[in-house]
Design a protein around this nucleic acid. Structure first.
Length: 258
DNA sequence: ATGGCTCCCCTTGGGAGA
């Protein structure tokens, strides 16, 4: 079973890129972030024609998340619990093929410090609380998406350039670590303990050409899945396609669950 | 120190991204 994440940076603007990649990788499940469209404008029909069911939480102009699946999707949550005043579309969750899949678009948090950074930290706290609840269900669960957190110095091309960046602030890294400490496994880092792996390349300064990247897109596996992980990787070449998102698609393969 | 790039708004420049 192949699960994937792709911050598409505008699902309608890049629908052809998404369809091309879906055909190539043929993932069973896809978590999309930054769909950047209202619910009524989500390209459900085109995705259905490509063989995918979909659920989505849209929003005008910004954010927005979706889950695609070759098999039926049972939505379990729309929006991250813990703050009724939070009107950003950043979390959607579903039960698919014996798994709970959480699709995450964590706030960027820049400029830091400031209100946006406070929102990010609060969101991370809410995610940690909700993830604890998920673990208590005893169902295999994966929290997939764009965490906007660079976990360690190995996960970016130039640590010194990012000391004042919300993605790399000590509080962000600490909160991510605290989340993992509940029992979650960072799948990509587990598969490649020492390798430099990036999932994002800025449009600016020829970042992709210089391999000046960041690792921001993560799969967190519940404890019962840690020994089911088979393979995974970054579809880096997609970042080189004309008109691509600044993120790469990332995928893992796990043994099917029943 | 700044801007570089790209999306979306329903624009003709601004906000946000990371």
């Amino acid at each position: 079973m192949i699960l994937s994440t792709y911050n598409i940076n505008g699902v309608n603007g890049r629908i052809e890129i998404l369809l091309k990649w879906l055909k190539e990788r043929s993932p069973d499940v896809v978590c999309l972030q930054e769909i950047k469209c209202q619910d009524k404008d989500f390209p459900a029909k085109k995705l259905k024609e490509a063989g995918y069911f979909a659920i989505w939480q849209g929003q005008k102009s910004w954010n927005g998340v979706a889950i695609l699946s070759k098999t039926e999707i049972k939505e379990t949550k729309r929006g991250l619990p813990g703050d009724p005043a939070d009107d950003h579309s950043r979390y959607i969750e579903a039960f698919i093929g014996g798994l709970i899949i959480g699709c995450i678009y964590l706030p960027n948090g820049n400029p830091a410090p400031g209100p946006k950074f406070e929102y990010k930290l609060k969101w991370l706290k809410r995610l940690t609380a909700h993830s604890k609840k998920l673990l208590s269900f005893g169902i295999p669960t994966i929290l997939i998406g764009d965490y906007n957190v660079i976990p360690t110095d190995l996960d970016l091309y130039n640590p010194d350039r990012f000391r004042d960046n919300a993605l790399f602030f000590p509080e962000s890294k600490k909160a991510y670590k605290k989340l993992l400490a509940l029992g979650w496994t960072d799948a990509i880092r587990t598969l490649y303990p020492d390798e430099i792996i990036y999932t994002f390349y800025d449009y600016l300064r020829n970042a992709f050409g210089r391999n000046a990247g960041l690792r921001l897109d993560h799969f967190l596996l519940s404890p019962d899945l840690s020994d089911k992980l088979i393979d995974g990787g970054v579809d880096k070449h997609v970042r080189g396609w004309q008109g691509a998102s600044d993120h790469c698609p990332v995928w893992i393969e796990i043994q099917p669950t029943k």
